[in-house]
Nucleic acid binder design. Structure first.
Lengths: 168, 168
DNA sequence: TATTGTTATACTCTATAACTATA
DNA sequence: TATAGTTATAGAGTATAACAATA
């Protein structure tokens, strides 16, 4: 195990060997790793409530927007439509939303939040806030705003669904 | 399909429905999504060379540090040791590194770069640089430095392997 | 008995594409 | 014929644990 120690004999031994500068100096690398741990932690946290971040996203779409069909939900979140079916099944079984046929087009389902769904969404929000606080703990308030602004700029370019269109 | 349009009739129709503010306002959410697209694109780019970002990381560790065993490489990168075996098999088969038994402990393999491995690493670096440039295109040079510094602070806290220990 | 590297197994995700019912 | 939702299947990726050689 001593072979993994990259410190000199005089310096305190770190149990965890350091990543090469080449990787740590890459913003993309840090983004990938931090995104991974963030995802990992949120999955664990939501799992304790029997849900997944995907479920939160679906509920958030339902509360934010006009009545949605399954196709519009999937498109908004960038999810596969087949994948969404299972998510909706789980949320419906828990009584957090309901599907009803669109009378104007009986192929479609109009999906809407139930009161229980809104309550659960509030809880998920609290969990998300806690996770966000943990993630950003090392940063000052100004730094957090700065980081968010920079990520927004990247999202504008790379995540079309995040683009802030000029509103009327 | 018109039901997915969240714009009013007077505004130009965006093909991609917008994500709810609740999600876009979350730094963790942006981090996860941007990390995902970044990972996705790098996998595609490396795939064109018959390699994977994992391979780049392994080669970078070998060039940066002292002679490594398989266990030390895995620990440095946070990879599973079983997973690493396959990666090393592929790299060895391409002649980019070699394994030889450690005479002091015949259970161990000392892994080292070949000249071909160094050449390939240079190519992978060029690819990584190009991907980084694409990712950060929307930012000025100052903003890039700012973003990297902020992510470093987060990494310090959340990615122990990235922590910058005081050097002698 | 513990550790290094290896292999095998199983499980989760995801992507694809059939299938139905409606249009 | 095309679309909305559903279901089934296969593939990649990952995690777990059994295994042989050596300490």
């Amino acid at each position: 195990m001593t072979i993994t120690n990259t410190e000199t004999a005089a310096t305190p031994v770190s149990k965890v060997p350091r990543l090469p500068e080449e990787l740590v100096n890459s913003t993309a690398f840090l983004l990938k790793r931090l995104g991974f741990v963030s995802k990992d932690r949120s999955i664990s946290a939501y799992d304790a409530m029997g849900l997944h971040p995907y479920h939160h996203a679906v509920l958030a779409v339902l509360e934010a927007g006009p009545p949605e069909t399954q196709a519009s939900i999937a498109d908004t979140l960038g999810y596969d439509r087949g994948q969404l079916v299972g998510l909706l099944d789980e949320l419906e079984e828990k009584g957090l939303l309901e599907r009803r046929r669109d009378p104007d087009d009986r192929r479609r389902h109009i999906v809407s939040l139930t009161p229980a769904g809104k309550k659960t969404l509030a809880k998920l929000r609290a969990t998300a806030d806690r996770l966000e606080e943990e993630l950003l703990a090392p940063l000052t308030s100004a730094e957090r705003a700065e980081l968010h602004g920079l990520l927004r700029k990247l999202a504008e370019q790379h995540l079309p669904q995040c683009s802030t269109l000029p509103r009327p």
